[in-house]
Structures are given as C-alpha cells and as structure tokens.
Design a protein around this nucleic acid. Sequence first.
DNA 1: GATTACAAGGAAAGCCCTTTCCCCGCGCCC
DNA 2: GGGCGCGGGGAAAGGGCTTTCCTTGTAATC
Lengths: 338, 338
Amino acid sequence: MATLADVARRAGVSAATVSRIVNGSPKIVSEELRERVLRAVQELQYVPNAHAQLLARSHRTTVGVIVHDVSDPYFAEITRGLQRVASEQGRLVIICNSYRDPERELEYVELLRAHQVEAIILAGSGYHDPAFTKSLNAKLSAYMATGGRVSVIGRHKLAGDAVMPANEDGGYMIGREVFKAGHRHVGVVAAPKQLTTTTDRLAGLRRAAREFHRALPARRIAYAEFDRDGGAAATEALLDAEPRLTCIVALNDSMAIGALSVLRSRGLAVPGDVSVVGFDDMPIARDVTPALTTVRLPLVTIGARAIGLALEAQHPNPRVEEAGAEIVHRESLGVPRA
Amino acid sequence: MATLADVARRAGVSAATVSRIVNGSPKIVSEELRERVLRAVQELQYVPNAHAQLLARSHRTTVGVIVHDVSDPYFAEITRGLQRVASEQGRLVIICNSYRDPERELEYVELLRAHQVEAIILAGSGYHDPAFTKSLNAKLSAYMATGGRVSVIGRHKLAGDAVMPANEDGGYMIGREVFKAGHRHVGVVAAPKQLTTTTDRLAGLRRAAREFHRALPARRIAYAEFDRDGGAAATEALLDAEPRLTCIVALNDSMAIGALSVLRSRGLAVPGDVSVVGFDDMPIARDVTPALTTVRLPLVTIGARAIGLALEAQHPNPRVEEAGAEIVHRESLGVPRA
DNA sequence: GATTACAAGGAAAGCCCTTTCCCCGCGCCC
DNA sequence: GGGCGCGGGGAAAGGGCTTTCCTTGTAATC
C-alpha cells in the first residue's frame, strides 16, 4: 500500500503538504504543488490509512449501534432513521448484531469503545437480569466517564439518554380494541419472559383487561422465541390448551404471522373463527391475509431521536423521551363468534 | 481514556509487558506481574485502542461487505452465511449498504481499503454501465494489487473471485413451469433494465419461451423498482395494457407480493384468474396468500462460499463458482382459465 | 569459579498520519 | 533601507500500540 510518505516523495514535497491537500485543509497551497500532489495520488492509487488518521486526529466521527438483528424489520426501521441523521451530521455508523445474546452485547460495547466511537446506541429489549444489567451499566459508565455518549432505545435502568417506545401503552391500546370487540377468551403469544419488551407489552394488556373486568390467566399466555416460528409454536400450544380461544394477541407482527399460519393449517378462519392482532406494524403486516390489525410504533423517528440525543451537546442529566403508539385497523380483528 | 502507558505506570512495569499480557502473547510472564497488570487494567477500565493496534499490527483481520441493503431478506440471507464463516475464522465483518447507488459503491470500496480490510465482498446485481464497471474495476484492481482479496456475488466481469447465483437458469426453470402449465399470455414484472440480475433472469425466461414456442413481447414486460411497491406499480401497468394476462412472473418475491396486492384490490383471484410466481424464495414467500411458487437460491451457501474464496490462500486465477437454483412449488401458480 | 544458556522484562523503533510550530522570502510601509 | 507582516512550505512531535532486539539476573555445566 502506498503511504503518505510515498506520495510526498514522488511529488517532491513534504508529508505535511500532501496531508493538507488530501484533506482539504484551510491552509493555502500553491496551485502548482497541488497539481503535482494530486497527480502522485492518482498514480500511486493512494488512499489514506483510516486507522492512522483516527489515531492522529482527536475528534471522533463514528457512532456504534447495537441491535438484535438488522435484518429484522423492527431494527431495520430504527436503523434507517438513525442512518439518516448520522449522514446528515457527517457521521459513519457501525452496526453490531447481538442476536439477543447478552454476552455478545457486552463484547460489542467493548469493541465499540476500542474503536473510539463517539457514541453508542443500544436498541432492542432489555433483559430482566440484574447481574447482566449491572455489568452492562458498568461498561457503559466507564465509557461515558471518558467522554463517550450513550443512548438507549426501550431499555430500563441503563446509563445514558433514552427513547422509550410506548410498549406498555401500545399493549394497553391493542388490549382495549380486543376487549372492546367483545373477546373473552383471549390468548397471548408472547416473547421470552426475560425480555422487558415482553413484560411491558403484557403489562399494558393487563391494564386493559382490568379496565374491562376481564382476566388474562397465565395458562392463556404462551412464551416462545420472538419470531415467526416462535409465534407458530406458541399458537399451537395455546390452541391445544384452550380450544375456545376467540382471539390471539401476538406480541409482535412476526409472531402474529406464525399464528396466522397455524390457524390456516388447522382450518380456522381469521377473523371468522379466531381474531389475531400483532404489534409493531412492520411493512409486511398489510400484505398477509388477512391484513394485520396491529399497533404502530414510530420506529424511524425513534431511531432518529436516539442518535439525535447522543449527538447533542453534553447534558448533565440523562434525558428520557417517550414515543407514542397508534392502532392500525385492518382485517384480522373481528368480533367473537356468537 | 486510559492508555497502555497508564496501565504500565500503575502496575509499575513496561508497556511491552502490559501489551504481552493483554494480548496473550506466547512470551512467558511471571504470575506476579500478570496479576498486577490485570488488576491495573481492571481499575483503569482499560480497553486497547483498536486503531493503534491495527496500525501497529501487520496482519489484517476484518473483511468488508458491500450489499444493496442488509435489511432486504435477499441480502440478509447472504450476510448470514458470510458472517458464520467470518466468525469461524476469527474475522470481523463490516457491512456497507449501497442502496443500489453505484457512486456509493465506489466510495465504499475506497472506505474499506482505507480501513485496511483483508478482503472485500461485493454482493448484489451488477449494472449495465461500462463506465461504472471500468472505474469499479480500477479501484478493485488497485486494491488487489496491494494484497487485498476480492470476491463478488452475481457480478459479471469484475476483478476477483466470483460466486454466481443461477439467475439465468432460475429464470429458465420458472419459465418452463409457467409455460408447461399452459400459460400463453404471460406478463413480467421486472426490475430496472440496467441491473444485470434483471437481464439474466429475463434471458432465462426467454430461453424457456423459445423452447415452448411462446413469445415474450416487450409490451408484456414492465420495469420498476426492485421492491414491493415497484412490483405493485409494474403490475398495474401490465394489467392496464394487457387485460388478458393469465400469469405474472415477478423477478423477485418482493415484487410478487406487490403484484398480489394489486390483484387482490382489483378483485382478481390468484391463481384462479391470474397466476403469480416469484424469485428468491425469501422466508415470507410461504406466509402470503396464496403461498408463492418461486425459485429458491441457496443464498446462505452463496454468502459462505464467497467469503470462503476470499479468505483462502492466494490463487493466481480468479475462480468462478456456480450456485444452483431449484423450484419451490406452492399455491400461486395454476393453469390458465379455460 | 568461570562460562554458557536461558528466562524474564525493558528500551526503542516503527506503523502512518495530523498539526503545531517554525522558518524563509517577499512585498509593503514609513 | 530597515522593520513588519504574511503567505507558503517544511520539520518534527505526537497519537497508542506491537515487536524486535537487548539487558540483566539466575541456574546449569564443567
């Protein structure tokens, strides 16, 4: 690889001059040298070593994002918003997939810190695991202590600024819809218990249930992986245990799609026999049959705000912003069969 | 940020010793010093500066991947395979989204080179644009000239090793199914003309048409964006121009889903009135109604092989591997209405 | 007891760039 | 004509780490 020094030698100038030209420094350089240098850069196919630059420069310009999985539409949306703001502000973003492995999350915080990122954005559900939360917080605090900025999405009790999606509220809103429609035997297709997203959304559902004087007994809640196949598995379990179910509330749209598939294979009509509702309003929700009634979270905005908080000038107090939810009415929720 | 020197000072040893301990060098260090150093590392929350390390070390250990969009299932699958091999081989991967912008692709090659990556993997359709191809090749060659490895997925005429998905063959196979079923008025919902993926898949379709003595006139091919909404738009255009269509071949599953949605809103039954077939077999293909008949590409394997080629010991000649395709029969393809 | 051999740790030379500081020469002013 | 200011360029000091090469102290050998 050609280096700055090679270019300088070839152009017959000092390294300083090359650096100034290549980086467009404000310092004035004569047209003649500029041309010579640019020609040498071309001829040698010179590209500055990014690591050397980062070492030499003091200001940081890249931010790290830790998500469960970018290819999951939920995170893809968040990331989209985040990227937009990042490029507006001239920042590069490094994306890390934790695949919901707390250990890996810890490792990535360290990796990002090693890469001297300006800020770390942590998106995705938290875990009900005090030991883990503590060590994550320790790492995050250490990072913040040295000037790093941290911003989290939908996480309780973590250092740094936070944007909170309306998980509890959204659960409440969709619960109301379901109970308002008259459903009494409602099953919940839930994600793993130790995810805070699960408990938050469930809490909202319970609040709605209380309001309508309905029960949400434990046996009507099935926990499984937070994806399509998990949704299918949980639905099977629920249906086997409670054949009288008239409505299934899935804790996200992927799980709802799994539920739909099981229902179809059992010959149950949706919403004729059983209603199904989802959560998140991912793009595919409108394209399945029947189209999903679900709750929309402003994911793109959430991502944008998270990075916005992180990039703003230093604030003494961690700030918490709430992001609302809204019901999207489509076709998968009906009234219970008489 | 604490530095190596800080740790050394605190532990009362030299920087060399700290480096050896932190990196687990083979050189033997006494138990006593090791403990002192590790304690200092703990107390100072020391994390090595990755850029300084990369600068000081000679061997590269991260590979760069340029895709159109990781959140697109097509690339998500490829990336999954690629990541697996990468972590098996102790490599980190940097993912860059070009969003199908050739300019950005060029920039990313440069960025990855600046970051001293060991290999660059380029995934996703090529462009019918000689000028662009030439400058991309120039950049890639410059990179390879300095020891960089390049491996491309589904791209014609590019430097480096290549893995070729069976676009032409897949097109041929799905075309055969369609014509075998008796369809005579077949419309194609195609991606932009300048993508090689489009022309390759179309070429396969044409080969099948010739074999069955059928025509595929230009007016029955509608070009649009390579996504769900593009599929919808192209389908509208096709239906307006040729109301007698009995089958729509979409050039990927997303476009097929867009087609399905238009057909539904026009009250046309699938496959009763119009059949629809897709391409790629992305996970959602089985969950839409009707489930899509499509062609499956071994995307995970393709990703794995691409990085495999790149990481293997130097080979003089660029190698090209072919990856097969296979038809997945589901419900969206029927026989034409009599 | 002198010599050798080796184990353990340190000094210092890079890795490649940015940026401050300094120097030189020129035109300008009084 | 001497002093000043300034435009244009270079020297060199980092930035934080790895690794080679040395030094030192100790044990082993005859």
